[in-house]
């Protein structure tokens, strides 16, 4: 990692929000520096209010930092064409963020359409992605998001993020609202895609187990700061009670499950 230059880098980034009506202002991101290498899958883990979602929104400049520098491929995103930047990055939202009045196909094809792809090429890409995300185009193409299950909606959301062949995908708790089975399957499917397509993924989650199963590297956030980062193994050696507590949960669950399900573990 030290050899290749990072694809996404945060350097001493700060962002505060006004409290409004006399309330104190909140420093959501406090002097964060972070580098994500090409092809890396980085998960940012933290409790709600730790500033992780703000960090993600800074990455495609949905919000601008107060100070510090955010660069993609070495270029400060404060100086690039914002619209082009966002079209080159895939984004998956917590609740899907699908446009409720557009069909599944129109949702998936939106960024290619904005980029001016020919209609036939968009249609082919939509079918390709739906198949990839295990959605039957013949059945789901013309449905509205409201007619889909939660898992299907999130598959559409991932397909939409990938439609314009981005190199970078930002995901904000993409699988958080799904039932465990769907969540596991979709996470695995995405992990494969990430590898096959050579994506660089920045994923927000509050679930350490999910982060450890999917990501190459994990950054832990608390009160706007990154308090630790590294692989699961590296994190285990960090001397911090919060990091410890975050790791404790999956560890305890694993042991408990091992006791409850001896046969499965044995096989």
């Amino acid at each position: 990692m030290s050899v290749t230059s990072p694809l996404i880098s945060f350097e001493h980034v700060r962002k505060h929000f006004d409290g409004g009506r006399g309330a104190a202002s909140v420093l959501a991101v406090n002097d964060v520096s972070l580098a994500i290498a090409p092809g890396e899958f980085l998960a940012i883990v933290g409790a709600s209010g730790s500033g992780k979602t703000t960090l993600l929104r800074l990455a495609n400049r949905l919000i601008a930092p107060d100070s510090g520098r955010i660069a993609i491929d070495g270029a400060d995103i404060a100086n690039v064409d914002l619209i082009a930047l966002r079209r080159s990055i895939g984004t998956v939202f917590q609740s899907g963020g699908l446009f409720p009045h557009m069909s599944v196909a129109d949702n998936i094809g939106i960024t290619p359409k904005l980029l001016g792809w020919p209609a036939a090429q968009i249609a082919a890409r939509v079918d390709e992605l739906m198949t990839l995300m295990l959605l039957d185009p013949a059945i789901h193409r013309d449905r509205l998001p409201g007619q889909l299950s939660g898992g299907q909606r999130q598959r559409v959301s991932v397909a939409r993020a990938l439609a314009a062949r981005p190199h970078i995908v930002l995901m904000d708790e993409p699988f958080g609202a799904l039932d465990p089975l769907t969540r596991d399957a979709l996470g695995e499917d995405y992990r494969d895609l990430h590898r096959e397509l050579g994506l660089t993924t920045l994923m927000i989650t509050h679930d350490m187990a999910e982060a450890m199963l999917l990501a190459d590297r994990i950054a832990v956030m608390r009160d706007g700061r990154i308090i630790a980062q590294g692989t699961a193994t590296e994190l285990a050696s960090v001397d911090d009670t919060d990091v410890d507590a975050l790791l404790q949960t999956p560890r305890r669950q694993t042991e408990r499950l091992r006791e409850l399900l001896p046969r499965n573990v044995a096989s």
Binding site: R57, N60, L62, I83, A84, R86, R87, T91, F93, Q94, S95, G97, L98, F99, P100, H101, I110, T111, L114, L115, R160
Partner: peptide
């Protein structure tokens, strides 16, 4: 959240108005 999604997929304010907000 929908408005933010419109921004994130790369819509200009005018496109967001025409394709998302007005409909």
């Amino acid at each position: 959240a929908i408005l933010e999604a419109a921004q994130a997929v790369g819509m200009t304010p005018r496109q967001s108005l025409r394709m998302v907000e007005l409909p």
